[in-house]
């Protein structure tokens, strides 16, 4: 019991708060820090032989690490990079799960693009033009928490209001690392799931699997787009670059798009 407590608290207590972290030293070494931050750390290095030694250690060439041959390592990387992923590599990378899921989807895969069934909202509005999705691909569904605390389905494109609390469910045909990125009207992006950032949770395949947490919409009005990113379990969806026009993701990732029309008053 004491051990657990010890590995957290004392480190923060007895360390010099001015001591630069390895990350800060790595960024200084890579010339990534702004002038003020760089000057502060360089002053610290000039005054602290220990920290100076740490920084100089970063300058050691890869060759100085006995157990690693950097030329062999780089050659391996380049060799791998030059070759398309083999079938075995794809299977290792989680394609087996995806292929299995697609087989389950079966005949529906033949019909490539289908219209997702309309899910009319409380005001009777039908879904917008953004509901065309790849059959078998991930599907994001959104519910708005009503006054009675129960979830009401929201259709893509349907008006929502600042202060609305939204919860999400996903339909997945394969075990996936899942993330939802929101892109606001001004292009700002945020994590809608997981709310706290960090690694994307692995979600097992299923219909309308509820995701934890809820998003409360802020005051900014305009069209906001949610992108559900579903990648093979070994691939991190956070590596996708998401813009207003859609995500650019590593191989194997798929996505669904959901539009929120944020208006000034509740519908």
């Amino acid at each position: 019991m004491k051990e657990i407590w010890d590995f957290t608290a004392p480190e923060d207590d007895d360390l010099d708060p001015e001591r630069p972290s390895d990350l800060a030293l790595d960024r200084l070494y890579a010339d990534e820090l702004d002038g003020e931050a760089a000057a502060r750390i360089e002053a610290r290095l000039a005054a602290s032989p220990d920290d100076r030694a740490r920084f100089e250690a970063l300058d050691r060439h890869f060759d100085d690490i006995d157990e690693v041959d950097p030329r062999r390592l780089l050659a391996s990387i380049r060799r791998e990079a030059e070759q398309p992923a083999t079938l075995m590599e794809r299977l290792r990378a989680g394609w087996m799960a995806w292929i299995g899921g697609l087989v389950v989807v079966g005949a529906a895969v033949i019909a490539f693009f289908v219209l997702r069934p309309a899910a009319n909202g409380p005001d009777g509005l039908g879904p917008g033009p953004d509901i065309v999705t790849l059959k078998g691909g991930p599907v994001l569904a959104v519910q708005r928490r009503g006054a009675d605390g129960r979830g009401q389905p929201v259709a893509s494109g349907e008006p929502v209001a600042p202060g609305d609390t939204l919860k999400f469910t996903v339909t997945l045909s394969a075990r996936s690392a899942v993330r939802i990125i929101g892109v606001e009207a001004d292009g700002a992006r945020y994590d809608a799931f997981p709310l706290e950032g960090g690694p994307s949770p692995i979600i097992e395949p299923g219909e309308k699997v509820p995701l934890g947490g809820a998003v409360t919409l802020d005051d900014a009005e305009g069209r906001e787009t949610l992108f559900l990113l579903a990648c093979p379990a070994e691939v991190e969806p956070a590596d996708c670059r998401v813009g207003a026009d859609g995500p650019a993701c590593p191989d194997g990732c798929r996505f669904d798009r959901f539009v929120l029309d944020k208006q000034g008053s509740a519908q």
Binding site: A30, L58, F62, I65, P70, L73, L74, E82
Partner: peptide
């Protein structure tokens, strides 16, 4: 060019990643 970029990225940051 892409292979050269890989080499540059590795030489600059390979040790840090390792």
């Amino acid at each position: 060019h892409e292979l050269d970029q890989i080499a540059v990225l590795f030489r600059q940051h390979g040790r840090m990643v390792y």
